[in-house]
């Protein structure tokens, strides 16, 4: 069980006039090698929650355990670096973090910080740059010379090179064109890791995520299997969530008398059943 969160609370700006509770009694258990989608409106606490997973924020009370590494909310934490090696975070607009002279050096930066040897860091950097589809010709270029999509990929390689067991992705494709977005997502799906993806794209969630974690106003509303989540009509209407396009299409067909054996996760299978059943 890689992540266990118990009664986690987080209060912003404690004892100040603008104090507010961003996370309320969060209880969450996540399993290895599953793909989780973390969803909720802007300001629901998604970003706050993921910052707790590698101790960038420390809760006001509660317990967090990541791969048997415990983050304390009531005393000083030591060796947070060890934890940060376990949990890689790709932040929103991650290309902002690039700073080294060359693309290669920038990807090596993370591993070197975690005391990996120079040659090993280089090997890792090359491996992951290739994985995200950065051409070798670009390795010695300054990251600032690359295009927006390429920069994003380099930044992502910089996190993958840490080889974390858990990957937290905060809207990793925001602002990219649909094709670049698809390319990047496919890289993540190909990895055998625990993935927590923060996103607003329900089509993506519906097709790829194993489970949905839904936050609202600092509360964990539910965590459950993706199709289960989107077919809970009461929940969907209570929080005014939009349905994934595919499910919406299937529902409309069902209303008109089409019958289905199951909820389909891709268009191809759905159309097949419409035509041949």
């Amino acid at each position: 069980m890689p992540i266990e969160i118990e009664k986690l609370n987080f209060i912003y700006a404690k004892d100040m006039p603008f104090e507010y509770t961003a996370l309320k009694d969060i209880d969450l258990k996540l399993q290895d090698n599953k793909f989780y989608a973390l969803i909720g409106k802007t300001g629901s606490g998604k970003s706050t929650l993921i910052q707790h997973l590698n101790a960038l924020l420390i809760g006001s009370s509660g317990k967090i355990k990541v791969n048997n590494f415990e983050i304390y909310t009531d005393k000083k934490n030591k060796n947070l670096k060890n934890l940060r090696k376990e949990v890689g975070v790709v932040f929103q607009f991650s290309e902002q973090q690039l700073f080294e002279e060359t693309v290669l050096k920038d990807v090596m930066f993370g591993p070197l910080n975690f005391k990996v040897s120079e040659s090993e860091a280089k090997a890792k950097a090359i491996k992951y740059l290739k994985l995200v589809g950065i051409d070798e010709k670009l390795f010695e270029k300054s990251p600032f010379e690359l295009s927006g999509g390429q920069k994003r990929k380099v930044a992502i390689a910089g996190i993958l090179a840490l080889e974390p067991q858990i990957l937290v992705l905060d809207e990793p494709t925001a602002g990219l064109d649909p094709e670049s977005a698809k390319e990047i997502l496919e890289i993540f799906f190909s990895l055998n890791k625990t993935i927590i993806l923060v996103t607003h794209d329900f089509d993506l969630v519906y097709s790829y995520a194993d489970e949905v974690i839904f936050l609202d106003n600092g509360n964990l509303i539910t965590k459950r299997e993706t199709v289960d989540f989107f077919t809970d009509d009461e929940l969907i209407s209570k929080y005014q969530l939009e349905l994934p396009s595919l499910l919406n299409f299937q529902n409309k067909l069902s209303e008109k008398g089409f019958s289905f054996t199951k909820k389909h996760k891709n268009l191809k299978d759905l159309i097949k059943e419409v035509i041949y059943e």
Binding site: D177, E179, L267, K268, I271, K272, I275
Partner: peptide
């Protein structure tokens, strides 16, 4: 798709139907 663009969902359905 060749120039890295997507099409709307309704067009995707139409094309999937055409394939069949």
């Amino acid at each position: 798709n060749n120039i890295k663009l997507d099409v709307p969902f309704n067009v995707k359905i139409k094309e999937e139907l055409e394939k069949n």
